[in-house]
Write a protein that binds this DNA or RNA. Structure first.
Length: 496
DNA sequence: TCTGGGGTCCTAGGACCC
DNA sequence: TCTGGGGTCCTAGGACCC
């Protein structure tokens, strides 16, 4: 606990939903829900307008409460882009920045040379809030306090779009009457155990004493909770924490019962997991398979290899052995594959590498041959790294239905950039607008209209156009394939 | 509140080694 | 050959967070 509020916690407000509203002028001021699509989808983030209806994160039945909201598919490439900008702003404040998620971080202002006084810390926080809007197009809330826990509680109180400083010396008066749930780490299960023991507030936690809390909640939880409730929190802000695991999982729209289908899906998940592992430049030693059954009971099985690997076929085979030892006959709603025990990737010798790639290729061909019947051949999603690169010439194969996901970006040869508002019965409705344009109008096309193509997200903040540069080509967020957004984008701006 | 997806940390038992 | 304690690794499950 510091004598000055020099630990800063920042969180963007309703991040994903706010990013969608910044992106889509027509949705500003309206209920927007990211996620919640599909028979088993849950809400990822609800805009403040949607929260009025009682919609919140992780909720399954949002549609009943808020049928008129815009339900959108998440666009993680955009959120990551915004996150990079945000973390860049924070890095200017201090070398000690600890990201907690894409939109949340702790910053140690003292390590950044900020004078350890309330006024100085507050000034930095206020400037940060002012800088966030023009840099990201979004708003954030800032908490400042003498410890991580209090800074986080402060920024929670500051939401939306505010700043709260907890002055050292005032924290116990503030904390005491709060519910035990206000302390990060106290979820439903510990809260219930505490309630049965007659403990409801933070003050009662501190009065209960460490021994009692350890008895109720176990050694680690009890001890750390007692310290936090007593206002003791010396946890440092830690930058550059390495990830400890990588995993992917998928809930199917309907429970899977067919054994070969389960095996096939596990192999695909293993490939996706390794893809992500490799992107992170890591390798892992323990392969984990997760199964959630029809009744929501959850099983995991793991296998530790002799050494770390980032070889798709090795991970796939381990996952296959694990799933083969698991009971799935009554129906599986979720399958997952993960890798833990991560090590920094070390380039193996070239022969081994070549052999591995060859094997992976053969394996993926085998997997394709083994694909169980009844499954569409493969719409659009690349089955493996070898088919990934696609130049500007790659046309969408005619006849194959494309997924037009609500909220995703498209570009039309005549009307320019827009986003999918909805699709069905062979038609897709697109709203033509950009982050910096006035609200746009919708048009409807056949799903296979050749003039319509998927596109990368546009940045939320209009990029500066250097004086003298041609006003056309606006950059897209990702420099990946398929861009081609430029045509006609120059003239239609309104704001700015 | 019939419950996603990506993570983190903790607990507890058993194997194994010294 | 028996007994014991401590440390570490592995496995499985559970709780929490965003």
């Amino acid at each position: 606990m510091r004598g000055a509020p020099t630990i800063l916690h920042l969180g963007l407000d309703a991040f994903y939903a706010a990013a969608e509203q910044a992106s889509k002028p027509r949705l500003r001021g309206k209920p927007v829900i990211v996620g919640g699509l599909g028979p088993r989808g849950v809400v990822s983030t609800a805009s403040y307008e949607a929260r009025v209806f009682g919609v919140h994160s992780a909720m399954a039945q949002a549609r009943r409460l808020c049928p008129n909201a815009a339900y959108l598919t998440p666009r993680f490439s955009l959120y990551r882009q915004v996150s990079d900008v945000l973390m860049g702003l924070l890095a200017r404040l201090s070398p000690l920045v600890e990201p907690l998620s894409l939109d949340e971080a702790f910053v140690d202002l003292e390590a950044g040379g900020v004078e350890p006084r309330s006024e100085a810390a507050r000034a930095v926080g206020e400037r940060l809030r002012r800088d966030i809007a023009p840099a990201t197009g979004l708003s954030g809330s800032v908490g400042l306090a003498g410890s991580k826990m209090l800074a986080k509680i402060a920024s929670e109180q500051a939401k939306p779009d505010g700043l709260v400083v907890i002055e050292p010396g005032t924290e116990m008066a503030l904390l005491g009457p709060m519910s035990v749930r206000a302390i990060p780490g106290v979820g439903p299960a510990p809260a219930e155990a505490l309630r049965r023991a007659g403990i409801h507030t933070v003050a009662e936690l501190a009065e209960a004493g460490e021994a009692e809390l350890v008895r109720l909640l176990g050694k680690a939880h009890g001890a750390s909770l007692f310290a936090l409730a007593s206002g003791r929190d010396e946890r440092p802000v830690v930058a550059d924490r390495d990830a400890k695991s990588v995993s992917v999982e998928d809930t199917s729209d309907e429970d899977l019962t067919d054994r070969s289908r389960v095996q096939f899906e596990v192999a695909r998940l293993a490939d996706r997991c390794v893809e992500r592992l490799r992107e992170a430049g890591r390798s892992g030693r323990t392969v984990v398979v997760k199964v959630r059954r029809y009744d929501f009971s959850t099983l995991t099985r793991s296998e530790t290899l002799r050494g770390p690997t980032d070889d798709p076929s090795v991970v796939r085979e381990a996952a296959r052995r694990l799933i083969d030892g698991m009971e799935t006959s009554e129906g599986v709603r979720l399958l997952g594959v993960g890798v833990t025990g991560l090590a920094d990737y070390t380039q193996e010798d070239l022969f081994a590498q070549a052999a591995i790639e060859r094997e992976a290729l053969e394996e993926s061909q085998r997997a394709q041959d083994e694909a169980p019947p009844g499954r569409p051949p493969d719409h659009g999603r690349a089955p493996g790294p070898e088919s990934a690169p696609q130049g500007p010439i790659s046309e969408p194969s005619p006849g194959l239905p494309r997924d037009w996901l609500p909220g995703h970006d498209v570009v039309h040869a005549e009307y320019g950039p827009g986003w999918v508002q909805g699709s069905g019965v062979g038609r897709v409705t697109v709203r033509f607008e950009q982050p910096w344009s006035a609200p746009g109008r919708v048009r409807t096309f056949a799903v296979d209209d050749p003039a319509l193509a998927p596109a990368e997200p546009l940045p939320l903040v209009r990029p500066e156009i250097p004086p003298g540069a041609p006003a056309a080509s606006l950059p897209t967020v990702d420099l990946g394939a398929g861009g081609g957004v430029a045509a006609g984008a120059g003239g239609s701006a309104v704001g700015g």
